[in-house]
Simulated assay, not measured.
Amino acid sequence: MKYFELKCKAYIKQNIELNDSFDILSSYINFSFLEDEKLKKSHGEKGFKNYCFGNFYPIEKDKVYKVGNTYEFIIRSLDEEFIYKLQRILRENINNSYLQVLQATKKVVKQFFISELYTVTPTITTVKDENGKSIFWTVDKDGDILKLQKQLQDNLLKKYENFYNEKLEPTQNFIQLLEIKNQKPQSIFFNKKINDEKYIKVRLFGNKFKIVPNEDEVSQKLAFVALGCGLGEKQSYGGGFVLGKGIK
């Protein structure tokens, strides 16, 4: 197993507030897909996209990314061809009113033993409440940790099976220890198009976790998938971007 990463250096053309940054980056990446017929087709299809991205860093104290400064962001995928195509497109300097990618450096990461995972963007997870209605999992709204862990594992299993076209047979949940790092839900905002003239701002609620995965083969594969294409849902909006510690 491998994942492929693009570390992008971006020049900021106008101030970007933190609450707008996920939507701006998501839109920028989505627009890039239009420059390649295969990416354009896959983007329009339903199902897992097998990529994730992190927000601009470093974060400014006032939570505003400043015009004239450069920041980095990372895009990851299990799909090498996807990363290769995206690298080529980004190097062609897509015209955008908010940012311009100056550099996109590719990195290949082979599977390694993962001792800890840390989510650096909110992990979005939907579960069913007692009435069968889908809700975002938060401590206040649900609070069932075992339900959360099952949902996170089921999502990773589907991502693995979708990309590798084979099933895994876990004997336990891949999570040995889960620690919620936020005191209140974390948010991702994006603009949803209603018609040609109108947009509404949508708010996704999530959490940031520290996860210690189990050491068995299946658990380690699922932890690696979390690194390669995100933990939880809404990766195309920036959800569930993960960093890992371990032995390489």
Results as ranks from 00 to 15, higher is better:
K159P: 04
N30A: 07
S187C: 05
K159A: 08
F163R: 05
S187D: 03
Q87S: 13
F136W: 06
L204S: 02
H43M: 11
F22R: 01
G206L: 02
E217M: 04
L6R: 04
K9L: 14
Q149G: 04
K167Y: 11
D142G: 04
V202D: 01
F190C: 01
I24F: 00
Q220Y: 10
P58G: 09
V242H: 10
L152I: 03
K167D: 10
T123N: 06
K141C: 05
C229Y: 00
K210C: 00
G143I: 13
K193R: 11
Q220F: 10
S42D: 12
D20I: 00
P185D: 09
N191R: 10
I59K: 10
Y199Q: 09
E130P: 05
H43G: 04
N165I: 14
I194A: 00
K46D: 09
K141A: 14
L25F: 02
E130S: 12
R88Q: 10
K40E: 08
C8N: 15
L90A: 05
K61Q: 12
Y28I: 03
S134C: 03
G68V: 08
S77W: 13
L152C: 01
K201S: 03
V139M: 10
L156P: 01
K210D: 01
K7N: 13
F190A: 00
Q172P: 07
V120A: 09
N207F: 03
S97A: 09
K49S: 09
I74N: 13
A223L: 06
K167R: 14
T70R: 11
K133F: 11
Q220R: 12
K110T: 13
V101C: 07
D62S: 03
L34F: 12
E233F: 06
A226I: 12
D196L: 08
G239M: 02
R91V: 00
I29E: 00
F189P: 01
K192E: 07
L178T: 06
L117A: 11
F22P: 00
I124V: 13
G232L: 02
G47W: 06
L156R: 03
A226M: 11
T123L: 05
N162Y: 07
I24H: 02
S115E: 14
D154K: 13
K2H: 12
G132Y: 00
I12Y: 01
K208P: 01
V242L: 10
T105H: 09
L243A: 10
E81S: 14
I29V: 05
S219Y: 09
F33T: 14
F224Q: 12
K61R: 12
N155H: 14
F31V: 12
I114Q: 08
K63Y: 13
K248N: 14
Q87P: 02
F33V: 03
F53I: 00
T119D: 12
D79P: 04
K245Q: 13
N207Q: 07
G238I: 04
N19V: 02
L86M: 15
I200L: 12
V139E: 14
Q153D: 03
D36A: 03
D196Y: 08
G68Y: 11
L222M: 10
Y3H: 09
K234T: 02
F22K: 01
K210W: 01
Q235S: 11
I12R: 02
K107R: 10
Q153T: 04
I135Y: 09
